[in-house]
Write a protein that binds this DNA or RNA. Sequence first.
DNA 1: ACTATCTTGAAACGAACGTTCCAAGATGAC
DNA 2: GTCATCTTGGAACGTTCGTTTCAAGATAGT
Lengths: 195, 195
Amino acid sequence: MADVKHFDPDTVLDTVVRLFWRQGVATTGIQDIVNATGLNRSSLYATFGGKQELYRAALERYVQDRSRFGRLEEDDRGLPAITEFFTGLIETRCTGEFAQWGCMISNAHAGTENGDPAVRAILDRQHQGLRTALHTALLSAQRQGQLADEADPAAAADVLALLAHGVNLRSRAGADAQQLHRTIAAAIAAVAPRA
Amino acid sequence: MADVKHFDPDTVLDTVVRLFWRQGVATTGIQDIVNATGLNRSSLYATFGGKQELYRAALERYVQDRSRFGRLEEDDRGLPAITEFFTGLIETRCTGEFAQWGCMISNAHAGTENGDPAVRAILDRQHQGLRTALHTALLSAQRQGQLADEADPAAAADVLALLAHGVNLRSRAGADAQQLHRTIAAAIAAVAPRA
DNA sequence: ACTATCTTGAAACGAACGTTCCAAGATGAC
DNA sequence: GTCATCTTGGAACGTTCGTTTCAAGATAGT
């Protein structure tokens, strides 16, 4: 009955994610998106709606594709799982394709993006998810005797979840990976029993 | 010989700080600044230069006026000084005039602002300053027997400095002050000797 | 092959952007 | 009071913003 899209919306959305992730929503114009995707404005608006809706979709996509605490939650090794999570995080933030891009979620916290209730809901959901994943991993660690007697898994999870934002921000400004690794290692060591 | 300014540049800059702090540089227009300050565009450009130079000046002013770790550095009580620093930080971030504004420095990390080397230099300087202040306070704590034997003041300072960014980000998205207080208390308690 | 239906290209929209310009106004030195 | 000098008001600059519009093009069902 009708024509079909001449492009793959999933591929396009992935390209858009990278634009918003690196440059932020305020400093990324529709023209930038047209240039990067090769799409026409008509196709863009017909498929995704306006800029704000496109940003929301991109943020959801970012969460689905780039969030790594799902693995953490299923990893029952305890502290090594947490260490691995942060090690991977820092490497992603400091080297390779996404070096100095920060985290799209952390970035959204700092911008005017979070004025949109739908965006703020994503930020909260993501933070709670990370807290829960860390809490689960810490309980697992506790069960395996990897935690000091006085350590509080819930409180430690909150501390580490906040710390992740610090890593994301500082890495975007070019912080040294080694330095971040050392700091996170110290934070994790703080809940372990004395050597 | 000549006319004199009909306004106080210091007062104007303070107003500009609040605009950039709350809304960010990308989403704050020159028109917003004209409206908020009552200045004419001519006076604005003649006094401060363009938007980017104005932002840099505002960021420097923010650091001078709002940075609180100077007090921390001169406070030799040890852990209580650190607790007080974070307590005040969280209150400023969550209640009163600046509630949910976050920290202008943290916000700058997440935006395109940090592409400007002059801006990034301010961010680095500020982070190092906070690390040093915390380190000094922790050494003071250690001298007074407030630290566990195995605690590493330098590493703990790094952890707490990163944590501050977490507080700044999450508070901007409306995080609960009590929750933040509890988390920070746990992080500080982690370096204290077992009760 | 016809046609209904969706997609695409390209131009255009008004509004807002940061910046510049210049005449008019205000000031202090002489 | 005069004059040189800086400041101010306000219009205007060209660009870019996000969005809309519509004719031309492409497709799948009949």
